[in-house]
């Protein structure tokens, strides 16, 4: 799966979870701002991602990650 496809899937997943329109979200959006979420809800998103892609993503790898594209880069390393 390309990083671009992965980013699109992450956007779909986040949009569904936080009831946003996927079309309104862009790969370089700050996902905290775009989704209007806080740190606790970010944990929910992490759980959704891990469940959906059947991977584990250590929290510390997300330090400093703010965009969907950045998120895809981290998740891609974990997808077999």
């Amino acid at each position: 799966m390309s990083e671009q496809d992965l980013t699109a899937r992450l956007i779909d997943l986040a949009a569904k979870r936080f009831k946003k329109s996927a079309e309104s979200l862009k790969s370089d959006d700050d996902f905290f701002q775009a989704l209007g979420i806080d740190s606790m809800q970010a944990m929910e998103l992490l759980t959704e991602i891990e469940e959906h892609f059947e991977v584990e993503v250590p929290d510390y790898e997300l330090q400093g990650v703010t965009t969907f594209a950045g998120l895809a880069e981290v998740v891609k390393r974990r997808v077999p």
Binding site: E50, E51, E56, P58, D59
Partner: peptide
């Protein structure tokens, strides 16, 4: 030592 969180499945 990592301070990471484990999901329920793990």
């Amino acid at each position: 030592l990592t301070g990471r969180s484990l999901n329920a499945t793990r």
